[in-house]
Nucleic acid binder design. Sequence first.
DNA 1: TCGACGAAATGGATCGTTTCACTCAGGAGC
DNA 2: GCTCCTGAGTGAAACGATCCATTTCGTCGA
Lengths: 353, 353
Amino acid sequence: MSAARYGVGVSTFNSVPPGAGISDVARLAGVSQGTVSNVLNHPERVATATRDRVRQAISALAYVPNGAARSLAAGGSRSIGLILSDLENSLFVDIARGAERAAAEAGMSLLLANSDGRLESEDRYLDLFAESRVLSTLLTLNDDQHFRQIVGRVADSRSLVLLNFQVDPAEYCSVDGHNERGGYLATRHLIDIGRRRLVFVGGPDSLRPVSERHRGFSAALAESGLTAAADVTPDWINRSDGWRVGTGLVEAIAAGRIDGIVAASDLLAAGMLQAFATLGRVRVPHDVAIVGYDNNQAAWDSPVPISTIGQPGEEMGYRGARLAMEELVEGDAHQHRAVVLEPTLIVRESTVS
Amino acid sequence: MSAARYGVGVSTFNSVPPGAGISDVARLAGVSQGTVSNVLNHPERVATATRDRVRQAISALAYVPNGAARSLAAGGSRSIGLILSDLENSLFVDIARGAERAAAEAGMSLLLANSDGRLESEDRYLDLFAESRVLSTLLTLNDDQHFRQIVGRVADSRSLVLLNFQVDPAEYCSVDGHNERGGYLATRHLIDIGRRRLVFVGGPDSLRPVSERHRGFSAALAESGLTAAADVTPDWINRSDGWRVGTGLVEAIAAGRIDGIVAASDLLAAGMLQAFATLGRVRVPHDVAIVGYDNNQAAWDSPVPISTIGQPGEEMGYRGARLAMEELVEGDAHQHRAVVLEPTLIVRESTVS
DNA sequence: TCGACGAAATGGATCGTTTCACTCAGGAGC
DNA sequence: GCTCCTGAGTGAAACGATCCATTTCGTCGA
């Protein structure tokens, strides 16, 4: 978090005509400012009659409390920030929904931002949130490098909770899906339906969740005395990477050297499926069974609905926000925690017809 | 916008330990507060040497300006708010991206909120944004009723721009896709490829965009001297509605009474496609050609990629934010405008094989 | 009748900035 | 040598709430 952004150009916007302030309300209701403030924030301290009078004045003047003044005087906002790394991915939308629910329950509000996975945006929003004095920031992450860079700059003690990324509880709180178990479940499922020549189609090892899923894959194989039929590492985990990889695998599948694929993401799986469908030499699940990961829209929208590992996105968001709040309440006594959520296997037609 | 939300329960969070303030920086750099403020906001007013000294002090203390105090003193924030009605729909994600770009270009920031299409959430966030004194709010809308309810409560003069919804420029600025033209384009395309027995699968008429698309459909038919083969009005425009409708249409299609469908949304189209695939009596596009609307992920992820009408979502967000800013700059001289963007036909395999 | 008490309301200090009227050097022009 | 500028920096008054120590007042018990 850089200490400041210098030289913000100041263009000239006409500011909003100031509406009624708390003092106007107080005058109209014939009470002091303090009383109006109490009606707003501690209604129980104010006698019913007074309260009603004040409320009437409030509506009459269409008074809207000034959040800035409130935060300043109260020494902090009542909101938490959430920086999402990919709004296209429905997992993150679920996370947002869960976090918002937790915030609403606690009477707080949630500020959203979309970093599109770009380090500089993550940075910018971290700054912005710091300036807004949000009580806490939730940050979704999937890249080890980003993690290192970011935490290097988070100098202040404001609380930070990482989502979709597990870190040493000595450093931060985090909420993550159990990626290793997910990889295991996917692989186990393929083995259970009789597949033996399995491949893990992953992505760069810098993507932490991917490498963890890979570990689960290997564990399941080892457990059954199998070894991987091949190892495939696309550049990234998007649909187009799946397409490329899929094209490259057709030969091996047609030749019977591969009969099951664990993909590190649904997009990857969907891309492969498209490649297979286009090239036409491989039928799913007959010739090869595929399991994806994340339970994205892409998974059930696919030509052949894709079996996948469901991540509890909403719960991830909810737990993350709760964790942030606990951290606030407990203060120095707080011990960071790494919450790990269980993934679930969702069987669709890409593995059993 | 209700004047206030009463009785917000106040739970007790430990507030963030206050960091260095502007006066600490000033002291360390040996200048006045005013000068520090100038370094931050009007660097050109400060001599280079002084400027550097101040900046050093800023990093040394890890000073982060307090946004609340800033907004309070400056009489307004430098952000605009955007309330999205459906994060699952990629159109809205595009809108967010466009709005953010416009904001960033102007040195402003964008506050996001997801209303999930619920009136009460739209309301709550409108309130929240009003308290945050955002300069302007962008609101995506698709329902006539919501529109009426909302504007009834927006009492203050703060600027509001409506997205994905066209209104009388006497009332508000708005940016919308040209839905009638979109409906026309879709229908024209079907006619051009030789289909004659066409159906519009819509949704409740309260959904403004839907009824407009329907108008375009009718216009295209009339132009070619055709009449609609049937009229279908599902309860809503989601995948499940498509499924239901699709099931109901199979008979007519198989009998050759329908050979082309214009769907009011891609989800609707995708649902129908799924129904057809499952029931197995109808082939797309051989027996029936389908055009969707929105160019969602669902459209290209579908078993048969769906021809669709693309909405310029990113541009919609960008133009909306620009409009909001113009409104701010022009002040009273401002004339509301209704920007209407051209949709484009995207041909995929659901209409031509 | 008086004092004590508690609930209700008061009013001013406070939060951390921005803004603006001002002071102050020092250089240019006459 | 005098005035007049100009660019750089100062310092205190807002901004609009919250907070809290204090005052007011009605009631109750003795």
